[in-house]
Design a protein around this nucleic acid. Structure first.
Length: 107
DNA sequence: GTGTTGACCCTTA
DNA sequence: GTAAGGGCCAACA
């Protein structure tokens, strides 16, 4: 049994985000043990295979903004997916103050 | 081997 | 509250 790769570790952390909550790239990177490699998160999510069950749309920037430019296709998919889980998205932004994922205080 | 790029973060203005 | 600049680290050409 080989240890999980960084990508798998990241996917595992992302998959651990409960529905209706969002986490920032830095937070995921830290929990995955990558430290400041927040940039790697986006790269790992970009390598997601087909048929995956990873809620990549629950990962946003630390500012609460979606990482994609407003109006882009990926942006709409992410925003729509978040709304379906009860997360309010306004002006391409999420109120992390309310929807931010806190492992110590699960849903 | 070097140089550029990137689904970012932090500090400062 | 938003905007701009600098920095960090791994993958890619």
């Amino acid at each position: 049994m080989t240890e999980p790769t960084k990508d798998q570790k990241i996917w595992q952390v992302v998959a651990a985000i409960p529905a209706g909550r969002v986490a920032s790239y830095g937070q995921v990177a830290h929990m995955a043990g990558l430290g400041r490699q927040a940039r790697y998160i986006g790269r790992a999510l970009g390598k997601l295979p087909e048929g995956h069950a990873i809620p990549w749309y629950r990962v946003i920037r630390s500012d609460g903004r979606i990482a994609f430019p407003i109006g882009s296709e990926a942006f709409e998919v992410q925003a729509r997916s978040l709304r379906e889980e009860g997360v309010e998205v306004v002006n391409g932004r999420v109120a992390m103050r309310r929807y931010g994922w806190n492992p110590s205080v699960p849903g």
